[in-house]
Amino acid sequence: MANNLRILLVIFSIILMIEILRLVSKQKLPIKYSLVWLGSALLIFVVGAFPNFIGFFTSLVGFKTTSNLVVGVILSLLLMITLILTLIIAEQKRKIKLIVQEISILKKEVEKNE
């Protein structure tokens, strides 16, 4: 893997980690959701910092170059994160539906008693 790409990955992952930690400390991002992002950033860091370690996996999985493996891994991570986000959205949709229904029924009862 080319050295500039390595440097880029390391810098990018460090910026990502700092930004996530900053968001958590400002209480904009709950710890629960920050873990998957921190894990991703750490993985990118390892790939950039220790390419030999990754090189072993490249041939093991069957990628031709390490950079392809990096792209592949990041893509899989994004898919996973998107799936988790979809699950969270579905859960929230269910809760919002319940709230709308209960409030609407309650509102009817309250207005009737006025």
Binding site: K97, Q101, I103, S104, K107, K108
Partner: peptide
């Protein structure tokens, strides 16, 4: 009953 937000047919009937 007036739903405070549009829920679609399923959510409405369930109410």
């Amino acid at each position: 009953i007036s739903l405070i937000n549009n829920l679609g047919i399923g959510g409405a009937v369930q109410t």
